[in-house]
Design a protein around this nucleic acid. Structure first.
Length: 286
DNA sequence: ATGGTCGGTGTCCGA
C-alpha cells in the first residue's frame, strides 16, 4: 500500500476496466491475474453466469477488491462491478421488461456515476421480423438511448462501460464489407448506437486515444482456432465518458494478450485511465 | 466457403 503524495495538480488517476468474462466461476483466477497485473480501480464484468449466492467473492477480496456489486442469474447474462474504491448507491434497471441481469449502476468517489451494461448479442439473422433476439437487441439500444436522452444534467460526470455487442466503426472490425450483414456491425445497429451516444453525449474514450484508422478489436471468436493469425476480431466492448470527463482521458489499452491465456474468454479486458480533477473537494460541478 | 468452438446445463440454448 503506497500513500499518494498530495498533488497540487488536483487530479487523481482512475483506472477503469470492462471485460466479458464468459463465466466468472470458471475464470476467477484470470480475473485475479488481470487485477494484480494491471491494477484497475474498478473492473466491470459481463456474462458472469452465476446467481449472487454463488459469486466467488473471496478470491477478489483476497487481492484487495472488497467492494463488489453483483447481479446475476442462472446460466445466462449477469453483471458485476469489482472495485477497490467505495461503491455507493448501487442499483440495477430491468431493460425491456425481461428480468435479465444486464445492467448495474453505482457511484464512485467524486460523484462519478458508473453504468455497466451487457447488451443482448442479437442472434444470427439481422432482421427483427424474423429474429426475436435481434428485435430485443434493437429495443434494448433504443431504451438506453431514451434513458440517457432524458434530462441528463449535462455537467454530470458519468462513465458507461460494457459489452455493447456493437462494433460501430469500420476500423472496429476485420472487414467492414464482409460484416455489413453480420449482427454487431449492421447499419441499423450502428445507427442506434450513434443515437445512444448522441443522446447521452457520450465520448468513446478508447477512440480518443487510438483514433481511426487504427484497427482495434476486443473479441475474437472461439470458432477460429488460429484467432491470432487470422485476427478476424471485432471491437464490441466499450468505455464511454460524459463531456466533463473527456479532458481527463489519459490512457486506453485493449489487453489482447489475455486472449492467449489458458482457458481464455473470447473477449479481452478494455482498460481506460482517467486523470479526474479533484478540485472543490472532488465533487462534481453542480 | 456459410463451417467452426465455447460454457452451463444438459441430451440443447445462447454466444
Amino acid at each position: 500500500m503506497t500513500i499518494r503524495p498530495k498533488k497540487n495538480a488536483g487530479t487523481r488517476p482512475l483506472r477503469i476496466a470492462t471485460w466479458n468474462i464468459n463465466s466468472v466461476r470458471l475464470r476467477i483466477e484470470l480475473v485475479c491475474r488481470v487485477l494484480q497485473t494491471w491494477q484497475p480501480d474498478v473492473l466491470c464484468l459481463q456474462e458472469t453466469k452465476v446467481v449472487d449466492g454463488d459469486f466467488p467473492r473471496a478470491p477478489l477480496e483476497a487481492v484487495g477488491y472488497g467492494e463488489i456489486a453483483i447481479r446475476g442469474q442462472k446460466s445466462y447474462n449477469g453483471v458485476a462491478i469489482i472495485s477497490r474504491l467505495p461503491l455507493a448507491n448501487v442499483r440495477a434497471q430491468d431493460w425491456c421488461g425481461k428480468g435479465d441481469c444486464r445492467h448495474l449502476a453505482a457511484e464512485l468517489p467524486g460523484g462519478i456515476e458508473l453504468h455497466n451494461f451487457y447488451v443482448p448479442a442479437g442472434g444470427d439473422i439481422p432482421d427483427p421480423e424474423q429474429n426475436d433476439k435481434f428485435a430485443h437487441k434493437l429495443a434494448f439500444l433504443q431504451e438506453m438511448a431514451a434513458f440517457f436522452g432524458q434530462d441528463r444534467q449535462a455537467a454530470a460526470r458519468r462513465i458507461l462501460v460494457g459489452d455493447l455487442n456493437v462494433a460501430p466503426l469500420e476500423a472496429d472490425v476485420w472487414s467492414h464489407k464482409a460484416l455489413l450483414k453480420v449482427v454487431s456491425h449492421t447499419p441499423v445497429e450502428v445507427a442506434l448506437m450513434a443515437e445512444l451516444a448522441s443522446a447521452g453525449q457520450w465520448i468513446d474514450a478508447v477512440r480518443r486515444i487510438v483514433p481511426e484508422p487504427t484497427r482495434l478489436y476486443s473479441w475474437w471468436s472461439y470458432r477460429s482456432p488460429n484467432w491470432e493469425a487470422a485476427d478476424k476480431g471485432r471491437r464490441l466492448d466499450h468505455v464511454w465518458v460524459s463531456p466533463p470527463l473527456a479532458p481527463a482521458i489519459a490512457q486506453a489499452e485493449i489487453l489482447k494478450p489475455v486472449r492467449g491465456w489458458e482457458v481464455a474468454s473470447d473477449h479481452v479486458p478494455v482498460l481506460v485511465t482517467l486523470n479526474v480533477p479533484v478540485e472543490a473537494s472532488g465533487d462534481a460541478p453542480a
